[in-house]
C-alpha cells in the first residue's frame, strides 16, 4: 500500500515535469534558425507561397496561441505532420522509436553483463589483474568518441573481417520485416517465430550496441566496484564471515545483493546516455531510429517532427527513471517511500 502511495506521488510529480518538457520542446523549435515554410517549399518559393504555408502551419498566430494549440493537439494524441518524411509524426515515431529502444536496451544489457561481473571481481580481488584490466577498460572506454569507435569497428568487423553485416538498415536488404506487433524487430521476430529476421537483426544491432556500451561499461564497473567494496567492508559482512559463514556465500549471496542496489539507480542515467548516443550511433551504422529522426527533424526545421520526437524521448526517459525508482523502492527494504 505504501508502495502504491509512493508510485502515485511520483506520478503526480510527473505532471509539472512533462508540462515543462512540452514548453521546452515548443520553444526549442521556435528558436531554431530558419522558417519551416521556406524549407517545405524549397528554393523556388515566392513570398505569397511562404505566407500561404505559414498560415497552413498556424505560424501566423501569436506564440501563446500556438502553444495552446500544440498542447491541445498532444492531449488529443495528434502530434502533427512531419514535412521531411511526408507522414504524420505519430507514424514516424511508431516506426522509429522501437529500434532505438532495442538498441539502447541491448547496449545496456551488454553493459550490465560485462560491467557488473567486472566490478564485482575487481572489488573482491583488489589489485589483481582483473582489477587492473577493469580499470583500463573503464577509462579507455570513456576516452574514445563514439563516432570514432563506431567507424573503426565497421572498418574491421564489416569491411576487413566480414563478420558484421553491411551498416545499412537493421535487416538484410532483401529481407522482409516480420508482421509489426510491437514495432521492435527482435520481439516481432520472436512473435512471428521468424529466426531468420531475428538473427539478421541481432547481427545488425550488435556492433552499434557494443559501440554504445563501451563508454557505459566503465561507469557501471566503477560503480559496482565501489559499492561492492563498501559492502565487503561493512560490519555485517565482517560479522557473517566471523561467524564462520563461507566467504563465497557471504560475497555472492548477501554482499552482492546489497551492492547491486546503487547499481539499479545507475540504470536510469545510463539509459539517458544510451538514448542520446543513438543520434551518433544511428548515423554511423545507417540505422533508422529516433536518434536519426530527431537529428533529421532538427536539421530540416521540421517543427512537428522536433516537437514530437524530443517530447517522446523525454517521456520515455522520464518513464524509465520512474520505473527504476519504483524498482528500487520495491527491492530496497530500507526505503521509507518518503
Amino acid at each position: 500500500m505504501r508502495l502504491l502511495i509512493y508510485i502515485a506521488r511520483r506520478l503526480l510529480l510527473l505532471i509539472p515535469t512533462l508540462l515543462g518538457v512540452t514548453i521546452v520542446c515548443f520553444s526549442l523549435v521556435r528558436v531554431l534558425p530558419g522558417n519551416p515554410a521556406y524549407f517545405i517549399l524549397g528554393p523556388y518559393a515566392t513570398e505569397e507561397d511562404i505566407e500561404q504555408v505559414k498560415t497552413e502551419l498556424g505560424l501566423d498566430k501569436p506564440l501563446y496561441q500556438q502553444y495552446v494549440i500544440y498542447l491541445n493537439d498532444i492531449l488529443h494524441g495528434d502530434l502533427g505532420y512531419a514535412w521531411h518524411t511526408s507522414q504524420p509524426v505519430a507514424d514516424d515515431l511508431k516506426q522509429r522509436f522501437p529500434l532505438s529502444i532495442e538498441l539502447a536496451t541491448i547496449a545496456l544489457i551488454i553493459t550490465l553483463i560485462v560491467g557488473v561481473p567486472l566490478g564485482v571481481v575487481s572489488a573482491v580481488k583488489r589489485g589483481s589483474w582483473v582489477d587492473n584490466v577493469a580499470r583500463v577498460l573503464a577509462v579507455t572506454g570513456v576516452s574514445m568518441p563514439m563516432f570514432w569507435t563506431g567507424l573503426v569497428l565497421i572498418y574491421f568487423f564489416f569491411f576487413r573481417l566480414r563478420w558484421a553485416p553491411p551498416p545499412m538498415g537493421v535487416l538484410d536488404v532483401l529481407m522482409e520485416r516480420p508482421p509489426t506487433v510491437t514495432g521492435m524487430i527482435l520481439v516481432d521476430s520472436i512473435i512471428a517465430g521468424n529466426w531468420e529476421t531475428f538473427g539478421s537483426a541481432i547481427s545488425h544491432l550488435i556492433l552499434p550496441a557494443i559501440t554504445l556500451a563501451l563508454p557505459m561499461i566503465g561507469s557501471i564497473t566503477r560503480m559496482t566496484r565501489s559499492s561492492m567494496a563498501e559492502v565487503l567492508h561493512s560490519d555485517y559482512v565482517r560479522t557473517a564471515t566471523a561467524f564462520g559463514l563461507p566467504r563465497r556465500t557471504v560475497i555472492y549471496r548477501d554482499a552482492l545483493q546489497n551492492a547491486l542496489l546503487p547499481v539499479v539507480t545507475m540504470i536510469g542515467v545510463l539509459y539517458g546516455f544510451a538514448l542520446g548516443g543513438t543520434v551518433l550511433i544511428e548515423m554511423i551504422f545507417g540505422l533508422t531510429g529516433m536518434g536519426s529522426y530527431s537529428f533529421g527533424s532538427i536539421m530540416n526545421m521540421d517543427y512537428a517532427g522536433v516537437q514530437g520526437a524530443v517530447l517522446m524521448v523525454a517521456v520515455i526517459f522520464v518513464m524509465i527513471n520512474l520505473l527504476v525508482d519504483i524498482l528500487y523502492a520495491f527491492i530496497d527494504p530500507r526505503i521509507s517511500y518518503g
Binding site: 515543462g20 531554431l32 546516455f273 542520446g276 530527431s294 524530443v310
Partner: peptide, 24 residues
C-alpha cells in the same frame, strides 16, 4: 527542482543537440 527535473527529463545529448542547433 521542477526546472531541474525538466532539464534532466531529456537525455543530455538530445538536449545538447537541440539547443546547439537553436543557438547556432
Amino acid at each position: 527542482m521542477r526546472l531541474v527535473d525538466v532539464i534532466m527529463a531529456f537525455p543530455p545529448f538530445i538536449l545538447a543537440m537541440g539547443t546547439a542547433a537553436a543557438l547556432g
